[in-house]
């Protein structure tokens, strides 16, 4: 087993185990912790695939931003209002059917797709390429995303503002 394989299996097993913890745990805070480790493991797999910038972005946005907010929300609602936040199992049969269908669809896609194969190990710098692509070919999607985020920001600030009575 090579160094690359070892690292891959560590992250892959980590991702699967923590995703399982996230789905099957009854306590919401454990779900959030499972999500934390799942996101981190997937970031590790991104690094192995040579997408270092994407991995760091994943950590920064999901772990530092979204997950912190999630935990914040759970803490505020559980400890201050006394509501027990627990997840349960509902709608077993429809759920199983949808999941099985999605699984088959993904499996078919994975086997049909033509994967870009690259030898592991040689990491090329990605930031220059990403920057150039964003400022040339992908400028319009980039600008649209920025405007969307700005609208969301203004909307959130408007909604959070206290009404003056």
């Amino acid at each position: 087993m090579s160094y690359f394989d070892l690292t891959f299996y560590v992250f892959a097993i980590g991702a699967v185990v923590s995703a399982g913890m996230m789905v099957f745990s009854r306590n919401l805070i454990y779900c959030a912790v499972g999500l934390l480790f799942a996101l981190a493991s997937i970031a590790g797999i991104y690094v192995l695939l040579g997408a270092d910038f994407l991995a760091a972005t994943q950590l920064l946005v999901y772990v530092g931003g979204i997950l912190a907010l999630l935990l914040f929300g759970i803490m505020l609602s559980v400890k201050f209002t006394g509501v027990e936040l627990r997840t349960g199992t509902l709608q077993m049969l429809p759920g199983l059917i949808i999941v099985a269908g999605l699984f088959l669809l993904l499996l078919r896609m994975i086997y049909r797709a033509e994967w870009a194969v690259q030898t592991p190990g040689d990491m090329l710098p990605t930031t220059t390429t990403i920057g150039k692509r964003i400022m040339t070919d992908l400028l319009i999607p980039f600008e649209i995303a920025s405007i969307l985020l700005l609208i969301a920001l203004i909307g959130a600030a408007y909604m959070a503002r206290r009404e003056r009575s």
């Binding site: 805070i29 912790v33 270092d52 910038f53 760091a56 920064l60 530092g64 931003g65 912190a68 935990l71």
Partner: peptide
């Protein structure tokens, strides 16, 4: 000496928030 060093520091230190929140909870 990775290509995205500074960005990596910003990203990885964001884990510390989670540690502090979990400790408090």
């Amino acid at each position: 000496d990775m290509n995205i060093g500074v960005f990596f520091v910003l990203a990885i230190t964001s884990f510390s928030v989670i540690g502090v929140i979990l400790a408090g909870w």
